[in-house]
Write a protein that binds this DNA or RNA. Structure first.
Lengths: 134, 134
DNA sequence: AGAGGTGAATCAGTTTCGTAATACACTATA
DNA sequence: TATAGTGTATTACGAAACTGATTCACCTCT
């Protein structure tokens, strides 16, 4: 059967981004592991009622982000992100994503410890949520 | 003389957003304090070569974020963000801005401690940079 | 070689976003 | 009240984003 993917075209969030998010989440949750094949563009397309090109676009971006490996004429497979070689790149991504909050904390004159406390708290609760789903 | 504001229309970042960022930064750095008047839309407009409506749009968003106070027919003034009443709201803003990094850390399976360490490090260096400018 | 599978390049249609031109409402000051 | 300052609502237009239809290139297996 198909992957647990649901899209809501009227949510405001672009469909291709919803796809990316859910696939990445399934990788993080362990449901998809290194070497696993992603569903074909046509299969997902008919299952979700979404145009194949929209699926393809999501896959392309995932490939650009090195989450997935493309093999011409064959289904995409999940890359192994746990290797040492990948660590730098993952941290670099996280760093980029943190620049906005860091700037905001400075702008709002929020105390260093307060900001760290909030971040720690948010990480912990999100990890608990993920655990419950396993 | 005018505020130290520079915009680059070809940077990809919307002009109104560049304005917001720089004004917020000037508030954080202490150059703009509570009660200070912002430059008039027309003054900034001619100084930067930007349409007055673009300035106004930036001002409107700043007002929505409670950074600035609007007074019909009079220049906008900087609000006092240090009060106790504002703290909750500022933390709420930071929390929103942190949701993306939190989700990313989970998706990338980045260790909790690693993520916290990076955040702490980034906050510290950004505070140093700000200090140097004072 | 042929059939049936894979993903993607190209192009078009629609919507959203950022910017700008105009005209209006308000306030301070004379 | 008259004038000159303030910000902005309305509207329009160009660019970019998102989705979709068609067509192509590639691989696997018989």
């Amino acid at each position: 059967m198909g992957l647990l993917i649901v899209v809501d075209p009227s949510s405001g969030v672009p469909v291709y981004r919803q796809l990316m998010d859910q696939i990445k989440f399934h990788i993080a949750s362990g449901l998809l592991g290194p070497g696993d094949e992603l569903p074909s563009t046509r299969a997902l397309s008919s299952e979700l009622g979404v145009n194949p090109m929209t699926i393809s676009k999501a896959y392309s971006y995932l490939e650009k982000e090195n989450v997935v490996e493309r093999r011409p004429g064959r289904p995409l497979i999940v890359r192994d992100l746990t290797g040492e070689a990948m660590t730098d790149q993952r941290m670099k991504q996280l760093r980029e994503s943190l620049t906005a909050p860091v700037r905001m904390a400075l702008q709002l004159e929020i105390d260093r410890e307060e900001a760290l406390k909030l971040f720690r708290e948010m990480i912990d609760t999100s990890e608990e949520d993920a655990d419950e789903r396993r």
